[in-house]
Design a binder for these strands. Sequence first.
DNA 1: ACCTGAACACCGTTCAAGT
DNA 2: ACCTGAACACCGTTCAAGT
Lengths: 224, 224
Amino acid sequence: MSTGRSRAPRNTLSAELIVDRALALLDARPMESFSMRVLAEDLGVGTMALYTYFRGKEELFRAARERVLADYVPPSGEGPWHEQLREACLAAYHVFTGRPAVLRLLAEASSGDDFADIAMVTMERQLALLRAAGLSRDEAVLANGALLRYTLGSALREVKACTSEDFHATAIRKRLAALSPESHPTLTDLGPEMVRFAQDGEAQFRFGLDLVITGLREKVAAAG
Amino acid sequence: MSTGRSRAPRNTLSAELIVDRALALLDARPMESFSMRVLAEDLGVGTMALYTYFRGKEELFRAARERVLADYVPPSGEGPWHEQLREACLAAYHVFTGRPAVLRLLAEASSGDDFADIAMVTMERQLALLRAAGLSRDEAVLANGALLRYTLGSALREVKACTSEDFHATAIRKRLAALSPESHPTLTDLGPEMVRFAQDGEAQFRFGLDLVITGLREKVAAAG
DNA sequence: ACCTGAACACCGTTCAAGT
DNA sequence: ACCTGAACACCGTTCAAGT
């Protein structure tokens, strides 16, 4: 781009390199500022060069998702089933949440069979733990679904907060200030706590996760 | 469009009518097929006519979200707090899930202060119930966050499934068939149940909701 | 005030080349 | 095989008009 070299040398590009730069851009800037043209310019290459390695934007995103999850293995520790389940969910949350690019790619994933590989390996582990704990076939599947929904929902909420550090907190503060204490007495009363926890998504996640797991332990205790 | 009238009469348009048609289009067709130009053509009007009523696409979407949630009031029934909480969450789930357009608009909402009005009225109600049940200030806020995350996460999962009736189920069947029983024994074993519940999002939602609420009742019992 | 077409600055992607 | 620019069919939105 700065050099203005008219033609890039023969093997400047590779699928790996393209995904690398795509992830870097998605880490740094919001989804809507990403485009094939921008990515190509960033790589110092014509736009159409990308199409030698990927059929299109969607396939590139798919590859990016796979790359970012490739090194993930759910922890298979010791201890009681509910502890292991907790660790597995926390690990999944950290994968989704650890990198802005993942969150943005996650929000984009529409087909549902994206993030499938990690989903499969995590689901296998969760289902095995749930079955071993004594849940029925139906219960195990439903519990797995609940954990997935909660974990994904929690991660997705972070997409909004990740624009800036405390932008989210001040937005909430503002919104609370606009409420009248008459119509929303409890909410305005709990304002300080709302603002505080808005800045700690993981604490929020852990609390709800413990709730779900407590519910599961109850179910196991009732059945056993 | 079919008439080819060169200029639309003076007051064919209104903010209400525009939002109406926008919602109709979003109910019928996926998000990516929606555009200001398509909407204008559907209304039999020049594209720029829309900009007399809305500053832009984002503001139109905001109005559509508000419209669709305007008639919603969380149920304020009788009975124990955990029953009322359950009903409130189910009602929110039904609002999000009852209409394809809502789901698509929900998935699009990035700023986070969208869906805020319904969020505020629902949050006030939930927080009041949680406090009355005996939870601490911190616990009430965290519990409210957990319920929100789970409900939104569950609704968002339906966006994918709502493309077609059983498209989702066959996609899962296919994916399961591709797995080797050696690497994913539990998952392949539970295949039939996975497929069955994939077609019943609400059953999934109810199961997890009960888990969370059971967890909350435990917490209340422990504190009381 | 309300609606218009033309134009601007973007997209993703196809196509027919160049090397 | 790998990379290219030009072109096509789209976007959202600005602008300077028309009525």
